[in-house]
Design a binder for these strands. Structure first.
Lengths: 216, 216
DNA sequence: GTTACCTTTGACCAAACGGTCAATTCTATT
DNA sequence: AATAGAATTGACCGTTTGGTCAAAGGTAAC
């Protein structure tokens, strides 16, 4: 008999246990890094949150820094995906509205990713600096050009595209990063889907009123 | 001769050296806490930044937590002052415009205060939780009522006041907390007064367009 | 059941942590 | 010059930190 592909134990180069544990570690690391930042987080705390001994965690990720890089990379994918989807050939109003909606969804669905990203920025982005100046800068440049084009066509008011993008980033991210403040000031418990729907409507309304050309 | 008030060495209950050292420590602590958060900051690092030995620092502030509380209190004053100045009896456009201007000024002039506040929020505001639910919530409620009144008078479009406030907080804070990202993506070095003037103009324009009623 | 490798952990290490303390130096007032 | 109190620090303490390692326990393939 020819050698059979062992499907369960070695799915894409990893053992079943390896895949399960790496996922558990990443999930635990995301919450701890989100709460306390890179330096404030401890390997022991992450290991405990992953229900695992510290040496065992370090068997899967060879250092705290390596684990942090892995988490940041995962974070980045979630966080920047929505912007890529803005399409110059479609309607500016629906494109911006959908972008805001996707960013609010990301804040609601992955609050830790948002907070890790924020924490990395607060300390001056030692890990992400190159990425910011490279990939992110050129992505923003491309999307700014799209917005400029819409403005030239008279489909958007003449606003500064980069500050529009910053405003949308800042506002949507706020509901994840400053969730405690939002909840305390708004007088809510945990924010549910209905709350986020309301946030999305309120933010979209102000922003779109702010950038759509006046009719007539 | 009657005892003379020693003016220099004991200005408001503190010796000259005490006042000087406490100020130096606070300044050093602000940058270190801003970079690394409460847990990530070390007393040694703050002492070195203040050009002082660790035991000497702890002679002025009896623990890391006490120093953090002092810094946070100082931060809070700077950070919330602008909102208090919004005046119901004046013109909504100029009031909102001035509020945005003052917040941008605060981001430009006290970036560390902003980042410390952000860091405290990221970890769930263990120190500020009561303040958020008390003073801050009622302050926002009062100012929301002012905005509601302006809306009722037809001087503002019917938008949700609390999300307008969140949007202004988020956007202005963004330029301090995410300064690395802003600089990298915008392709600037350090942000100067001219940059902040441009930011203020761009943000005010979008926000005011978004909330002012359309002319007849 | 044997083999080979993957996984797990208790014990440990040097360094860094927040904080204390006794001893010393500096400073202002008499 | 004397003195009392303020300021400063080297040495130190117990604990926690990120990380190592040898040894033991599982797991899958033959």
């Amino acid at each position: 008999m020819a050698t059979v592909e062992p499907q369960v134990p070695r799915a894409n180069g990893k053992t079943r246990i390896q895949a399960r544990n790496e996922a558990r570690i990443m999930a635990a690391a995301e919450t701890v890094f989100a709460d306390h930042g890179f330096r404030g987080a401890t390997v022991d705390e992450i290991a405990q949150a992953a229900d695992m001994s510290k040496p065992n965690l370090l068997y899967y990720f060879k250092s705290k820094a390596a684990l942090y890089r892995a988490v940041l990379e995962h974070t980045l994918r979630i966080w920047l995906e929505p912007l890529k989807e803005i399409d110059a050939d479609k309607d500016p109003e629906t494109e911006i509205r959908n972008y805001i909606a996707r960013k609010i969804e990301a804040s609601a669905g992955h609050p830790n990713a948002s907070r890790i990203f924020a924490s990395e920025m607060l300390r001056g982005a030692p890990v992400l600096a190159d990425h910011l100046r490279g990939d992110l800068k050129s992505l923003v440049a491309r999307k700014s050009a799209v917005i400029e084009q819409w403005i030239a066509e008279g489909r958007l008011a003449p606003i500064d595209p980069i500050h529009l993008i910053f405003m949308i980033w800042a506002t949507t991210q706020h509901y994840a990063d400053f969730a405690v403040q939002v909840k305390a000031v708004w007088g809510k418990g945990d924010l549910g889907p209905k709350d986020f729907a309301q946030i999305e409507a309120a933010v979209s309304e102000i922003v779109l009123r702010g950038i759509l050309p006046r009719k007539g």
